[in-house]
Amino acid sequence: MHGAPAYPFGEPVATDLHPRYAEVRAEQALTRVDMQYGGEAWLATRHADIKVVLADPRFSRAATVGKDVPRVRKAFEEQNIVSMDDPEHGRLRKLVAKAFTVRRVELIRPRAQQIADDLLDRLIASGKTGDLASQYAWMLPITVICEMLAVPLEDHYKFRGWIDTWLTIGNEHTLEEMNEARFEKLPEYMGSLIAKRRAEPGDDLLSALVAARDEEDRLSEEELITMSIALLATGHHTTANQLANHLYILLSRREQWERLVAEPELLPTAIEELLRVTPLSPYSENTRIAVEDIEVGGQLVKAGEAVMIFPAVGNRDPRVFAAPEELDLTRKHNPHIAFGHGIHHCLGAPLARLELQVALGTLLRRLPSLELAVPAEEVPWKSDHVVRGVAALPVRW
């Protein structure tokens, strides 16, 4: 147990995974690591073992809340839907789940297409070059989630800044700055929107949550605010970053972009493959605590011990995926866990898939000559964020 290697293994580079992950995955099911904060933990790197940790109720997320557990982030885990166990998690999830079913989300497609076309019209009108991240990849998911929640789109500069500060690892922001964004600025902002929805309810998701709070007493005021913040943040932050990352991968491997231009019918399988190979986070996060002794992959995890998971590493497990390091846009068998697994499987997965389909499909159709305006190695990447993403994606067409 002594002398565990320091984690993270190294600084992230673009969408690459540190080579040490493949080594430890080959060596043993769980690897002991010394986390940046909170001490030592087990790191699960194999697809099957990650799924066990994500799905088995003997691994608790709630046990991490407010505690100095092993983790990468400076801040302690806070109480929200992502850090809850059942039955509390299930109670809150049911309140919003119907808004994110495949059938309900499909109704958004025409509007998402209109948003994508409007954004591209503006981009093309501005000249022959642009930043595909800020001018397109970010604005599509932000506009969609703002309309779903009835959040004023013109406020996105404000709430994006607070969300970006909150969702950092804490190397470039102080804990005070992170906590101010999450526990002061965002609740104050969301509270003002909730007050407006109370006075003038509409046909939107935030109004439905207010009604569930006020008329049905199905969640507390604090839960209402926390849930609304979580929906606003996760409703755009992850998809926006992943969309830009997917574009970076395709444009930095030009032959893949050209194949999709020539064969747009490959888009659905291509998106699943891009989700598989693109790390959502730079490092393992979302610590879980074993609430009783449990064996994972032949390794005993004792009650009270922490386990870290990194789905991106499981998504390259050769036990599950043929040629796992290759980007195969035609890959048929693709049981990736990019959206998680178990009770915390991403609620917004249908919406994310729709937005990726619309955003990528529109670019392939309207800007087939799209290419990077700088060498791939010169594309800037965000640092200190819990979600991996480019800082800008300079392109020309």
Rank of each mutant, 00 (worst) to 15 (best):
F9M: 08
F9V: 11
G10N: 03
D16Q: 14
E23Q: 14
E27A: 15
D34P: 14
M35L: 02
Q36P: 05
L43D: 04
A44G: 08
A44D: 07
K51N: 09
D56T: 03
P57I: 12
P57Q: 14
R58D: 04
F59S: 07
S60F: 15
A62H: 09
A62N: 02
V65Q: 06
K67C: 10
K67I: 11
R71L: 05
K74M: 15
A75E: 03
A75K: 12
F76P: 09
S83D: 11
M84R: 14
M84Q: 07
D85M: 08
D85G: 01
D86A: 00
D86M: 01
L92D: 13
R93L: 00
L95H: 03
V96F: 00
A97Q: 08
K98D: 03
T101A: 04
L107S: 07
L107E: 12
D118A: 15
L119E: 01
L120V: 04
D121W: 01
R122V: 11
G127R: 10
K128Y: 02
D131F: 04
L132Y: 05
A133L: 11
L140D: 10
P141T: 02
A150C: 10
P152W: 09
F159G: 12
F159R: 10
L167F: 14
I169V: 14
G170N: 09
E172V: 12
K185I: 00
L186N: 03
M190E: 07
G191K: 04
I194E: 03
R197A: 15
A199C: 01
D204Q: 06
L205V: 09
L206S: 05
S207Q: 11
A212S: 13
R213Q: 15
D214P: 14
E221N: 12
E223M: 02
E223F: 02
E223Y: 02
T226I: 10
T226H: 10
T226K: 09
I229F: 06
A230Y: 02
T234M: 13
H237D: 12
T239C: 12
Q242P: 09
L251I: 00
L251Q: 08
R253H: 15
R253F: 03
E255Y: 03
R259N: 12
A262G: 14
T269M: 14
A270F: 08
E273G: 00
V277I: 14
V277S: 13
I289L: 06
I289V: 15
A290M: 01
A290H: 02
D293G: 09
G298I: 01
Q299V: 13
V301A: 10
A303W: 12
A303F: 14
F310R: 00
D317G: 01
F321T: 00
E326T: 10
D328V: 08
D328F: 12
T330W: 06
R331D: 07
I337E: 12
F339I: 07
F339T: 01
G340P: 08
I343P: 02
G348Q: 14
P350F: 05
L351P: 01
A352T: 02
V358E: 07
L360W: 14
L364R: 05
L367N: 06
P368F: 04
L372G: 10
V374E: 15
P380N: 07
W381A: 11
W381L: 06
W381T: 10
V387L: 07
V390K: 04
L393K: 06
